[in-house]
Amino acid sequence: MKRHFLLFHAVVLLNLLPACSVFCAEAMHFSCSAQVAEAFGKPLMQSFIETSGITVNTHISSSNLAISRLLNGFSEIAGSARALNVHEIESGLIEIPICRDPMAIIVHRDCPASSLTGDQVRRIFNGEVENWKPICGTEMPITVIVPGKDTAAFENFQRMAMHMNDIRYDYMTWKSTAAVEAVRYLPGAVSFIGHVAAYDQTDIKMLDIDGKAITDVTYPYIQTFSLVTRGKPSPQARAFIDFALSERVTNFIVTHHMFPVID
């Protein structure tokens, strides 16, 4: 009996050890959409860690999964590229929009096209146009690459560019930002992504839409990047929100051709 009692306590203690390492330290668990993570990047995150002393454990996934992890208590804060739905708001989630990011239509640098109309975008992504020839006169098959259906990039593009019509594609990537990698190696490829993910890529070209450059405030495809908390944010999450609203991050947003929401 005594042996069982000791064994029971040993098992309980062993179970508490990993839990303590997760929750006892001054660490914050951040579930983040791949686009948001790409937009803000490692240098900013490193700067936050250094100035605040808070350790950030980042889990990069789709926006849907990031919000789901937040709802299920796996993280204190999430970074999302899509708006919350009614059910999520009723569950007590609070969305703090940080910036608006133009969604770029990206092609390989050797692609002859430099701009598209909204109608051409729809016809390319619904499979009506399969060659660059009718668009820019050069014979080259179009390879349509899209981020996974579960990603905010896919949902936002379907809503903004396709007006909720179906998207036909040749390849689908699991992570939204992986589409950039795919386009880099396929000369006829076209895809879409938050423009910061393709910002410094020399092998990638971002197309103007309806004569509007990506830096234009009237560019048609704009998505909002937000931080999401479950109810009142924890002190660490609040510090992170304040950092995202700081002068440093606002300058970063502006210099990278994004637009701060709270200004």
Binding site: I96, P233, R238, I241, D242, L245, E247, I262
Partner: peptide, 26 residues
């Protein structure tokens, strides 16, 4: 509109002051 986010401007930065529920809070 379920809630409104409240921010306070401090120089060039903003600080989050919380969300205020306009509907009954969940």
């Amino acid at each position: 509109t379920a809630y409104t986010n409240v921010f306070v401007r401090t120089g060039a930065a903003k600080r989050f002051a919380g969300a205020v529920w306009l509907m009954p809070a969940p």
